Structure formats: C-alpha cells, structure tokens
Simulated assay, not measured.
Amino acid sequence: MWHEALDKNIAICNLYNKVPELKNVRIAEINILQEGDKVSIKFDMPSHADNPPKKWSLLNYNTTVIKIDLFEIKEISIKSLSRNFSGNIEIEKKDDEIEVNITGTVEARVKAVAGLVQSVGGYHNNI
C-alpha cells in the first residue's frame, strides 16, 4: 500500500482499519523547497478516519488531511490542467527510490531518495 513506502506512517495506520487508496483526492499543496531538494505534498484523504482522535470528533472534523515530504529529489515534473487540484496519487518504492505519480487536474511526477509522513490532521469540510 502507498503509505508503506513512507517513513513515519504509524499515525495513518492507527487512523484507518484499512488505509484507502488515494483516488480522486483534493490536493491542497505541492511545494518545491530547498532549491528543489525537497517536495511537500498536502492532500485530503478520500475518506475520513475510521478511528479519529477524540478531539477531532468534538470539533466535528469530517476530513483527514496528510502532508508528505520527499527528500533528495532526483526528478520532478508538474503540469496543471486546472486551478482546482484533484486526482489520483500513487506512491511506490522502486529500486531504493520513492516514486510519486499524480494524475488528474494536476499531473505530477516526483522521484526521491526518501519520504515521510510529515503531518496528519483533520478539519471540518463544508462540502
């Protein structure tokens, strides 16, 4: 599964009984940092957590948001087809590299040496 290619993924494992595939997700951010040596991607999960923290329930959160960081970037390409970014995200570990492919209203491809789950949060989405 996609989260297994990333370090520090335990929070995602704890939130879901079965971690969903990243199909038709809202992509909030794609940031290129540190002169292109780091890429951050922030996105909503396709379904809310099965086991949300009590605080999230009290605050009426209905959306889980994840931010991943990729390091030692070997390749990056981004093409925007719309202002509202959404699509499918595939994350795989291949030959000691992490490959991220995004297809949808934004198309992106990132190859990196390392990747981790930087943050996991929740919010109330008014859709």
Rank of each mutant, 00 (worst) to 15 (best):
E4N: 14
E4I: 07
A5H: 08
A5E: 07
L6V: 05
L6P: 01
D7E: 14
D7N: 13
K8Y: 03
K8T: 00
N9K: 03
A11N: 06
I12S: 00
N14K: 11
L15E: 01
Y16Q: 00
Y16G: 02
N17P: 00
E21H: 10
L22H: 09
L22G: 07
K23G: 06
I27G: 00
A28V: 09
E29V: 04
E29S: 08
I30F: 00
N31M: 09
I32E: 07
Q34C: 13
G36T: 10
V39L: 09
V39H: 02
V39E: 05
K42A: 05
F43A: 01
D44Q: 02
N51G: 03
P52N: 10
P53T: 07
K54H: 08
K55G: 02
K55P: 03
W56N: 01
L58Q: 09
L59R: 11
N60S: 08
N60V: 05
Y61W: 03
N62S: 08
V65L: 01
I68H: 04
I68N: 04
F71L: 15
E72M: 13
E72L: 13
E75K: 14
S77N: 12
S77I: 08
K79M: 09
K79F: 07
K79E: 10
L81D: 11
F85R: 05
G87Q: 04
I89S: 03
I91A: 00
E92F: 11
E92P: 04
E92T: 13
D95F: 13
D95V: 11
D96A: 15
E97D: 14
E97P: 06
I98Q: 00
E99P: 01
V100S: 01
N101V: 13
T103E: 14
T103W: 07
T103Y: 07
T103I: 11
G104P: 06
G104R: 07
G104W: 05
G104T: 11
T105S: 05
V106G: 10
V106T: 15
V106R: 09
E107G: 09
A108F: 02
V113F: 14
V113M: 14
A114N: 14
A114R: 13
A114S: 14
V117P: 02
S119V: 12
S119W: 11
S119Y: 12
H124D: 07
N125M: 12
I127E: 15
